[in-house]
């Protein structure tokens, strides 16, 4: 499999009145064509900021992307998303990379029909005429499972239920056959049965259209069910990346271990929210001078307080950002 997206050393900061927020401190990961990459991490760990940085969706100011690259490969070649100008990135947004947001009620324009809101990206990226657009929108609405699509075309967002609105959001994201869809906590606002339907729908469309999905979530139950690989974020850095089974069976980073231990047994049918482990995340106002997890880490030793750990590979697809080897119960000597 070939990577479709390669992000390296992404650094994003917010220059606010209170000081500089070091939101992303070197984020690297890749995404393979057609796979599902789940991103988990506590609130504020930088999951959304990472994705919005890639598509230039952050408010600037206060945000500034201060380093890194994000190579996007497709049939027409390779581009660095971070180097694109406004016009160029707008061709990628919605065209080659679709976005599904958490709360579909606030993410859809309340005074525009859902049909128009989907048609907008078709006009923009595929240059379809009015009639073609309409037909394609009705098709899309049917595809995402909205009954009575023809009539629903003219409805406004408030006339849909929460689950149906999220389906509309999915239709918006998938309208132009994107290569990647980024779903930022798409099911958090929904109740459990509807969540499952949305997860299933996304997976079905993903298989059908061959889309790579980045799925941001707090819900480790969903992760186990849908992800091929998992990226764990902490304080603006990836701390562990691994194939999903590998991560659950052999977690290598103390933070991941803590998360999995804090997780109630998953034999119950319902999915479990990520319960945060003891202690609180660090203040992002100070630039990181050591391992950001050291305050909460039961394995922390002297080196952890003096240096920022680099990413090390512990398997062909398994990377950890830590000085300590939990399996052999001693510091790594090769980093």
């Amino acid at each position: 499999m070939a990577p479709i997206l390669e992000v390296s050393d992404l650094v994003t900061r917010f220059y606010t009145f209170d000081g500089v927020v070091h939101a992303l401190n070197g984020v690297s990961f890749d995404l393979q064509a057609g796979e599902t990459l789940a991103i988990v991490g506590e609130s504020g760990s930088g999951k959304s900021v990472t994705m919005m940085s890639l598509l230039h969706l952050l408010p600037m100011p206060p945000a500034r992307i201060e380093g890194g690259s994000a190579l996007f490969h497709d049939d027409s070649g390779t581009i660095d998303l971070l180097k694109l100008n406004r016009a160029e990135i707008s061709r990628v947004r919605g065209g080659r990379i679709g976005f599904i947001f958490q709360d579909a009620l606030s993410a859809l324009n309340p005074v525009m029909t859902v049909g128009r809101q989907i048609a907008e990206s078709l006009e923009r990226h595929l240059g379809l005429g009015h009639e073609q657009c309409r037909r394609r929108v009705v098709e899309l609405l049917e595809k995402v499972g909205i009954p009575g699509a023809k009539q629903r075309y003219r409805n406004y967002p408030h006339q849909f239920s929460g689950g149906m609105r999220q389906r509309v959001m999915i239709a918006v994201a998938m309208a132009c056959n994107p290569k990647i869809v980024i779903a930022d906590e798409p099911t958090t606002a929904l109740d459990v049965t509807v969540q499952a339907q949305i997860v299933e729908l996304t997976q079905q469309l993903q298989r059908e259209l061959g889309i790579a999905v980045i799925w941001i979530t707090h819900d480790l139950g969903v992760v186990a069910g849908i992800a091929d690989r998992v990226l764990v974020m902490y304080a603006g850095r990836p701390v562990e990346i691994a194939p999903v089974d590998d991560l659950y069976d052999h977690p290598g980073h103390p933070y991941t271990i803590g998360l999995l231990e804090a997780l109630p047994r998953m034999d119950a049918a319902g999915s479990k929210r990520l319960i945060s482990i003891e202690g609180s995340p660090p203040d992002l106002m100070a630039p990181p001078a050591h391992c950001q997890f050291a305050w909460r880490c039961r394995y922390a030793f002297e080196r952890c307080w003096n240096e920022v750990p680099p990413q090390v590979s512990v398997g062909p697809q398994h990377h950890i950002t830590c000085f300590y080897d939990v399996n052999r119960e001693r510091p790594r000597d090769n980093v």
Binding site: P59, S90, R91, R93, F99, N109, V111, S121, R124
Partner: peptide, 30 residues
């Protein structure tokens, strides 16, 4: 300007002008 649906409009690749006229102004006009 800072509403979620404006961010959605940007994520669809619309131009600044389209976003102003269709999304921001229409909502401000009401």
């Amino acid at each position: 300007r800072s509403e979620d649906f404006v961010r959605t409009a940007y994520s669809k690749g619309l131009s600044d002008r389209q976003i102003y006229i269709r999304h921001i102004l229409r909502n401000a006009a009401i």
